[in-house]
């Protein structure tokens, strides 16, 4: 009975929501902010990658827990390593109804393309949902079992060793550059549209290695096709207790990727407060916490001024990295 009534209530709710979404006549309350139309939920990456899966999970949690008065409508804008998404956000016609899931291309793409005229500090800091981690993966058929063996083999093959990654001058490219510079390697980097395609091509031995996030490589890790060699984190990941960190092996390098939700520049304070509240609830939901531990995500929730100062630090760090690698002058 209770299930049935809750079913009726939810169905009615969804129907009302759909009607309301199309009427567009509903007005915001005098106090605070409530979305009056479907919220555009921009995803700064292609379908099937880590960012995409996570964004769609967030959307599902919002729907499941009934956290938003209007539905979130996911919209992938993967073009130009996130440039398409950033420009769309900058020119959003209704900043109060436009939010985006970002990753580190949020820092790198505006640095590489000043012509876009995007200043990330003007974006609204809704909330950081996690920091994603990176591992180095190779196919099991390579017969490589440690990072030392990887370095030896990659050195031997020179530019015949191929690393696949998401986008150019992106997270994956930064890590590849670091490996090349610090270990005297000449790995060839091939940019892909999304992490899902990279994972697939590593499993199919089209490429020799990847630096996928755990969420992207997990399926093929569990099936035994790919093996992790080293983690680019400060401490070992609970899910991969036998995989050493690069720091243990003497490298002075760790790298994380933010999984944050941002509002379009020009978002009102009331709207920002509304979305921060929504995503705080998403963060605290059982589904999100489970996903976080299942996929080896780290980092606590962060919003407002804390998040903007985190952005400042990250942007400065990326500027240094990109300058050193020659990606920007």
């Amino acid at each position: 009975m209770t299930k049935f009534t809750s079913f009726v209530a939810k169905t009615a709710g969804i129907a009302a929501l759909a009607v309301g979404a199309f009427s567009g006549a509903a007005m915001a309350d005098g106090h605070g902010f409530k979305p009056i139309k479907p919220i555009e939920f921009v995803i700064m990456a292609g379908k099937g990658g880590g960012a995409d899966k996570m964004a769609r999970l967030m959307q599902s949690i919002v729907e499941k827990e009934g956290l938003s008065a209007r539905p979130l409508v996911p919209n992938n804008k993967p073009g130009g390593s996130g440039a398409e998404a950033l420009v769309a956000m900058k020119s959003a016609s209704d900043p109060d109804h436009t939010i985006m899931v970002t990753l580190n291309s949020f820092f790198t793409t505006p640095l590489r393309q000043p012509g876009l005229g995007v200043d990330i500090m003007t974006f609204a800091p809704v909330g950081r949902m996690a920091e994603d981690t990176f591992l180095l993966w190779v196919h099991k058929n390579e017969g490589i079992n440690s990072f030392e063996e990887f370095v030896a083999e990659a050195k031997k093959r020179g530019s015949g060793w191929v690393m696949g990654g998401t986008g150019k001058a992106s997270e994956d490219n930064i890590i590849t550059d670091y490996l090349n510079d610090s270990y005297g390697l000449e790995i060839k980097y091939i940019p892909y549209k999304g992490g899902g395609a990279v994972a697939k091509d590593l499993a199919g031995e089209q490429i020799d290695s990847s630096v996928n996030n755990p969420s992207e490589a997990l399926g093929f890790y569990e099936s035994g096709d790919v093996i992790p060699l080293v983690a680019f984190t400060d401490e070992r990941l609970p899910m991969f207790p036998d995989v050493p960190t690069l720091k243990e092996l003497g490298g002075d390098f760790s790298y994380f990727m933010q999984r944050s939700v941002v509002g379009a520049p020009g978002m009102s304070d009331a709207a920002l407060a509304y979305y921060t509240d929504m995503f705080t609830k998403v963060y605290n939901s059982a589904d999100w916490q489970k996903y976080k531990s299942d996929k080896s995500l780290m980092g606590d929730f962060m919003a407002g001024g804390d998040l903007t100062s985190y952005w400042q630090t990250q942007r400065d760090r990326h500027e240094t990295i990109l300058r050193a690698s020659g990606a920007i002058k």
Binding site: K47, G48, G219, F220, E222
Partner: peptide, 27 residues
Amino acid sequence: TLGIPGSPTTAVLLAGMVIWGLQPGPL
């Protein structure tokens, strides 16, 4: 079988499977 969507629609189906508690992939 690979956890990779081949079309926009299967991307949404994949998202659904994740939240229903399934792990699409080789296993």
